[in-house]
Write a protein that binds this DNA or RNA. Structure first.
Lengths: 180, 180
DNA sequence: TTACTCATGTAAGCAGTTACATGATTGT
DNA sequence: ACAATCATGTAACTGCTTACATGAGTAA
């Protein structure tokens, strides 16, 4: 049940409409919890019905008209609870590692290309995170909230470093196995 | 669509019944693609109907009776295709990073305990992987398939190292922020 | 005969994905 | 007038989770 909480977090950072949220998910929150606009609109409806957010009075209720939402006290309380609740980490589900294991059984022909492709995607993501780090966290920004958000970004950075490192190692192994 | 392919891989490694598969998922394949017995039985039914696997002739069709499956040529071909197909990596969805970002907004009280708990879970998983590495990949086992399966396990190991490293860093940051 | 474990399933519901629909606003 | 873009939705479907049901074999 993370999506509603991701939305509450985003709305607390800045009240927004559904489309604005969708865009912010595409380039910020979504790096850790992606969502499409369909999911977001559906969830905004549920959150409003549950009394956790409300649409700003200025907003027209018509279709095609922008509708801005803000978080109510009940929404903040719910988010605060969620952060404190203890939750089990979800078991890993990674298709690439699974496919490599399958390749060990049915053969690796053509798989090196896929590894190269993933490597370049992860390198690009890593570069993007590093650029974000420079822009968003210059040394003078150092409030408690800044340090925490920086920590989250460093999580993303180190995760991409893991992928680029492992993929590089995997490609080296493939070259040792011979051209295929 | 990874679960059917995970099952095909497991069945190629060794023909099994549903419950045996469930157990192997719990301690091997499931480290990269977890599944419950309900999922597995449902998927076995679909794979059999699609002509990708068959239950061994010896097996009684009665409820409560063990039923063993093996992969047919069509199943191997499908798995082989899947390994070669190019697939986009799924966007990351990590609840802990998301919760830390929420904590930056609503306050971190009580969150350090959760970080410590996750750290100890990841340390335990790392130890388990390292023990598996010693057992399953002694220097003399060095066929192509061994090297590939070892590479998969090293992926798991390095992923757990990322988590333990980042969580340690996060806890250090929390202590700098002051006791809470 | 009761309880426990092995083994296979059914059913309901939730979360996420994909495809499509509809209205409002702006530029040419 | 039309096309493009902004903006909000609906519907159908797939995959995963949770809770429960049922039968067979075995040991006290």
């Amino acid at each position: 049940m993370s999506l509603p909480h991701a939305i509450l977090t985003a709305l607390l950072e800045k009240p927004s409409s559904g489309l604005e949220l969708t865009r912010r998910f595409d380039r910020s929150i979504g790096y850790f919890w992606s969502a499409t606009h369909q999911q977001i609109y559906r969830e905004l409806g549920k959150l409003e019905q549950a009394g956790r957010i409300r649409s700003l009075p200025s907003a027209a209720p018509a279709r095609g008209q922008k509708k801005e939402y803000e978080v109510l006290a009940a929404g903040r309380a719910e988010l605060s609870d969620w952060v404190r609740r203890s939750e089990e980490p979800k078991p890993t589900r990674d298709a690439l590692l699974l496919r490599l294991r399958a390749a060990a059984v049915v053969g690796t022909e053509g798989f090196a290309d896929e590894l190269r492709r993933h490597l370049s995607l992860h390198r690009a993501q890593l570069d993007e995170y590093l650029a974000m780090e420079e822009r968003q966290f210059p040394p003078e920004r150092d409030t408690e909230a800044d340090r925490l958000r920086h920590l989250v970004l460093r999580g993303g950075i180190e995760l991409e470093r893991f992928w680029t490192g492992w993929l590089t190692e995997a490609l080296a192994e493939f070259e040792r196995l011979g051209p295929g």
